[in-house]
Design a protein around this nucleic acid. Structure first.
Lengths: 349, 349
DNA sequence: CTGAAAGCGCTTACAG
DNA sequence: CTGAAAGCGCTTACAG
């Protein structure tokens, strides 16, 4: 990138920075003494410490972050790379909620979040490597783990503090936020089963994600064990695909009496498709969204949804990271999930 | 924060870093020569430059970000503070879309985004000040400007590169992404007027925002000039308040025949309230959402919405910032907005 | 074109 | 308890 120095200068004003040398001079001590004083370390008498601190405040001194980093101080920043397509990030409210949760815990502790979007897993890994090499982040959060995820392998190899959200890996430097996807799926299917449904369809998100595979397994197992006929159809989080899937399912000679969608956007797309087809919810078919939101509460009919609270998930992930960095035992609270029963589910005809 | 050194160490492995001194030694030159070589500056012959570069690659050298920052190099990072309540950020899809747009432009140019949430405007300002003092960011993006916004005043006073999204300030260091809120509001009201509506209500977002005030002004002016009766009701982006506002409006002896909501979440809340009241959309009342989304497209009826594409807005903001930092003339392309007509608007009874 | 050296702002052994 | 000095990894005048 070429910086043209000729054009109108917008360089932040180069106010000469106040350094510990300035303080040292004013206080009549050495810069080393200032360092001890401001860092609360022994090496200066209480009287001089107080005097130094006064001067520092008077001069509005702030430590140079760059110099401290050069001396090996932590960046106090956590990295998060989002590697889903731009459209998905812009539609799925999950990301905004998750980030909000992460932020709220981080900023309480003075940490900040470094965020970047990546086109694919490979570039996500290289972003992580750059951050690590630059010392820009103290640790990273990994979302949407896959089976034997290459990012987690790379990060574990670098022995870099990592929290895998919805993963299962546990090493010295890598911890996971455990999310019971199978249990949540059972919650949903049991709810439908209890209502009397025996033909259930599941429209999935991206099947290469580990958490989606867990859901699929739990779905299949429950159906088999309980004599329920279950269809599983790939959806990929795309509402257009969810619409097609819904049409195909209802055109079947043996249509399902209940539909489960892997995301709110997909569930809404499915509901709208049913309306177009003249299929009544819940009279003709019941519908469940995996992911709750205000929208689910205000739609008509309101949507029965699995509420797992992405904000809390973000908070847990951030808290685990902070504990990992502080060498504290990492508490891994269960991620609560509950089915919120609303109007879109009822006994089948 | 206490760091306990006793527990299991999760410090990133302290691999001794490869420095320019290492390269210098291997290549038989001074570290100054290495610096010239790797930075493409004159001062070394082509032959030595090539040799040095070879050694650098061989040793997998990467410049120390901290050292470079200490020498005054840019952080290549842009800051963004979100100071709306956590719930709003977690519900309004605007933020995720805007951030996605910002990211896509920034990451193409090797810049990253520093994100933080703040409880209020005052702490937003202090976050900015910290970032600036730490040299963590080269410039900042400001969202939701208010009239005579204190953040913008502070940033302008610091002469720090700033892009105000939806603002109007233009100084040497502060530029704005101009958003024609009044024009967009006219688009909406003209659409309703053309359909024959003469009693229109507008449920607003947070009225302390400059862009909301612009919308309100344009709404009032259009109504007055065209003999339309217009109600304006404060909504504050809260769906519960939007519901109450909707109920109050429809309970009026002179209920409006069309409703305009300042956000998608509010519009959906409004629509659901209408359904509860047994008011048909669009037969009894028309409805417009300021903010388009997939959800608007799949609801039943589909929602007529103002589409202003928050992703593009983010891209424009990021592009302006990069131009400002590069001392290039800042292009300020108009932010396109269009009304997408769907099923929720029709002529009144 | 090249080399030796000072400096960015801090921290931390190491002697007194 | 205190002071003088080296060092973190780079950049950049300043002499040759």
């Amino acid at each position: 990138m070429t910086v043209r120095e000729d054009a109108g200068a917008v360089e932040p004003r180069k106010r000469k920075r106040v350094t510990i040398a300035d303080i040292a001079e004013r206080a009549g001590v050495t810069s080393g003494a200032v360092s001890f004083a401001v860092n609360g370390k022994r090496g200066v008498s209480d009287a001089t410490r107080a005097r130094i601190l006064d001067v520092a405040n008077e001069l509005h001194w702030r430590p140079s972050h760059a110099a401290q980093t050069l001396m090996g101080k932590n960046a106090e920043t956590i990295g998060l790379v989002l590697s889903r397509p731009e459209e998905v990030i812009g539609e799925e409210i999950f990301f905004a909620k998750f980030i909000a949760g992460v932020q709220s815990v981080l900023s309480q502790r003075g940490y900040s979040l470094q965020l970047q979007m990546a086109a694919d897993i490979a570039s996500e890994i290289s972003i992580h490597e750059n951050w690590i090499a630059d010392g820009r982040v103290d640790g990273v959060l990994v979302l949407d783990p896959r089976v034997d995820d290459p990012r987690v392998r790379a990060l574990a190899g670098l022995e870099y503090p990592t929290i895998v959200v919805g993963g299962e890996v546990e090493t010295e430097t890598v911890r996971s936020v455990h999310v019971d996807n199978g249990g949540s799926m059972r919650l949903i299917v049991e709810h439908l089963f209890a209502l009397g449904h025996r033909r259930i369809a599941y429209v999935t998100g991206d099947q290469s994600f580990w958490h989606i595979q867990q859901r699929m397994d739990a779905f299949a197992e429950f159906c088999i064990d309980n004599g329920v006929w279950g269809h599983t159809l790939a959806g990929n989080f795309d509402p257009a695909i969810a619409k097609d899937a819904t049409k195909r399912l209802l055109a079947s000679p043996e249509p399902p009496t209940a539909l489960v969608y892997d995301s709110e956007v997909m569930a809404i797309a499915g509901m709208s498709t049913l309306a177009e087809l003249g299929v009544a919810v819940p009279a003709d078919v019941s519908l469940v969204s995996w992911e709750d939101s205000t929208t689910c509460q205000v739609l008509h009919p309101t949507l029965t949804a699995l509420n797992r609270d992405a904000v809390t998930l973000g908070k847990i992930a951030a808290a685990e990271m902070l504990q990992l960095l502080a060498h504290e035992p990492v508490e891994q609270p269960p991620v609560e999930a509950a089915i919120v029963q609303r109007e879109s589910t009822a006994p089948p005809r």
